[in-house]
Amino acid sequence: MIEWLTLLQILVAVVGGAIAVMLGLIGRRPSDLTMAFTGVVALLLIVQLGVAIASPIMGNEPSGSLLEFYIYLISAILIPFGAGFWALLDRSRWSTIILGVACLAVAVMLFRMSQIWFIQGA
């Protein structure tokens, strides 16, 4: 795991999540903006997967359990895709809130993942 990349992604997820929840609360349907935030969060998670696979090979070992890390990562990847498909099928304001909740959930999971990688067992 790369520290700055993870921080950047948590930032994107929190900002995107907060924007989507607010837009949903004022009654907006899923838009290009909220879908784009969710998409970027999902894309960065795929990048994280690549980084997670490559890191130990390059000597960047997790301080905690790699298995636990991967359970979080795989679960996290499912969330924005699930919310995104939901938003494509259900064009209501509630889908916008769900996009936001998904981004915020990913932010929490990324925080947990960074703990496992950098702090746990260190």
């Binding site: 359970i71 679960s75 969330i79 699930g82 919310a83 509630w94 769900i98 909740v101 998904a102 999971m109």
Partner: peptide, 22 residues
């Protein structure tokens, strides 16, 4: 609002499943 509830429940179920599997 029920849909938001369902979505949060789904995430919670996923999180609890993942942790307990580990």
């Amino acid at each position: 609002l029920g849909r938001v509830l369902i979505a949060v429940y789904a995430v919670l179920a996923l999180a609890a499943l993942g942790r307990s599997f580990f």
